[in-house]
Design a protein around this nucleic acid. Structure first.
Lengths: 175, 175, 175, 175
DNA sequence: GATGAATGAGTGTTCATTCAT
DNA sequence: AATGAATGAACACTCATTCAT
């Protein structure tokens, strides 16, 4: 079952992804991880600290999944479409819970720069992902923004409709 | 100074806009509104109820401000650009706090359809706003998505950079 | 049984007097007072606040008891001796727990001026009590210091020995 | 920098002197001493044990300082005055934190005889110090009590005023 | 219509101590 | 002799809500 710290991290991953940050208490985490409260604080000095750890783990996980999902694409256009299909895949898998990073952005006070900077860093990496594919920062930011909207609007309407529309727009853009 | 109910609504508007939903307690609201706790529950049967009221008020306010801001545009293109300039204006005014509706979307459990439907309704109205301007649902949704990204990304990076980029894209799109 | 607030104050009086400040938790207080935790925080915004209230109540109580005890003295000398006899009476009654004010002085961080000033105020009143009796501030401070030592040394040695010695000294001093 | 045990003892000396017993946690001690938690419990079976060790170390330190400070006095009267000057010196040095022994007396439950007896022993030695100087137990206890008050009142009022008054009284007493 | 007192269930965090290695 | 991980119990405090008046 792994060490207590591992169990905390895994449980946190599930619960923060599913319920969000504020709705998930330390009590629930330690209960489901089967760990004593003081053991939790041996490894994380605060809930905020745990949040940073979660975002880092989620960052690794999310990008790995994205790469895995879109890597076998034959050409650039196909790879971009696959990126949007990845969102559909994730929506199915995670029941339209949206982006953990943007959700937490909405949950924290605006002056929490510790967490904010981790979120910014994640999204900068995503922006760079599109930039490196397209070598054109006007175009890549355009697609990045459609990508971001796709996540949020599908979370909002519990539907992949606007992801599909984005795929159509992207197809037109890169020909 | 208005009636107790009015004072609650006004205070809630300020606090939810500034601090978000979960970070604003009933106690703070009634304290700043100068109203007794039981008086609050006379007018709103729960915090969730107050949230619905807030979203409705915010909806009215936000659209009125948008229309006021963009109404004196000479042509369609100008009016669309003004819509994005409105976001810059609001970011300045509200310190990059983003969209109250999307923020609350991230704060509530996914199964809270009462609040969810109010948020969906607001965003549907916005989608319709662009549709009625453009009479072309592919184009209008494209711009709607850039608009939504513009809000979120400027909240995330505390910068209007991607709003400016969106304005450029929109300019290109409608010629 | 009195209102919840009254029950909290009475229970706090007993427990702080007996066990001291740090050794008495909010949980014990509310349990013994038969009051909900949130009810406690309705009346006192923090444990520190409760401490101030306790010290005020204790101040009133202690001085009233002192006056009651020493009031029927025939002359000045007798009244001073009675004051020291009062310490013996209190030691018997409270099992040599010493002075609540000085005990709490030792329990709080040195920079807690909110509580410190209440303690200083109490002791200034006591100093004044002797000054008004004796109209001679050298003599009255001398006796005040013997009085303070009497409290502390009897707490330390669980004995009234040095109180008795002080009575002898005082007797010699004022003839 | 010395053995782990030495480092613990030295760190404890600083922290207990500065912050008191209850406000100083084991965690802070081992962190500042640079020692593992289990190492701590190898040398001290409980925090109470550490407290006893601290009081013993403090006893040695305090008396050595007192003797050093007052030894070069020409006569008895001067030596007594020097003892009170020592209190002023210590107040300056330790910022009016008072007597570690009396502070801990106030922090522990009344039935902790293990610690209580160490404190009693320290104060008995102090009483004896004055007795051996003066060879008159009425007079020496009188001065002992002024000495004790001097410590406490200067801690309480963050002032050496009553120490100076005590010096005056003592001067009068021994002529 | 308006109130202030009261609440049960929860929050995140820290305590001194013990364990297996 | 030395360690770092693990713990149960307690800490002070806050939440949205209800009740009697």
């Amino acid at each position: 079952m792994g060490s207590p710290k591992q169990r905390i991290v895994e449980t946190t991953f599930d619960l923060f992804s599913k319920q969000g940050y504020n709705s998930t208490g330390i009590n629930q985490i330690i209960a489901e991880a089967g760990v004593a409260k003081a053991s939790f604080y041996q490894h994380f000095k605060s809930k905020e600290d745990l949040c940073v750890e979660f975002l880092n783990v989620r960052h690794e996980y999310w990008f790995k999944e994205l790469i895995d999902f879109s890597s076998q694409a034959e050409d650039l256009q196909n790879q971009l479409i696959k990126a949007f299909d990845f969102l559909i895949y994730m929506n199915e898998k995670e029941h339209f819970r949206g982006c953990s990073f943007l959700n937490i952005l909405s949950e924290i006070p605006a002056d929490n720069i510790k967490i904010l900077s981790v979120i910014q860093s994640h999204k900068s990496d995503l922006r760079n992902y599109f930039l490196e594919l397209l070598k054109d920062d006007a175009l890549s930011d355009h697609i990045y923004m459609l990508f971001e909207s796709s996540i949020i609007e599908s979370q909002l309407f519990k539907s992949n409709e606007l992801i599909e529309k984005s795929k159509q727009i992207v197809t037109n853009l890169i020909y």
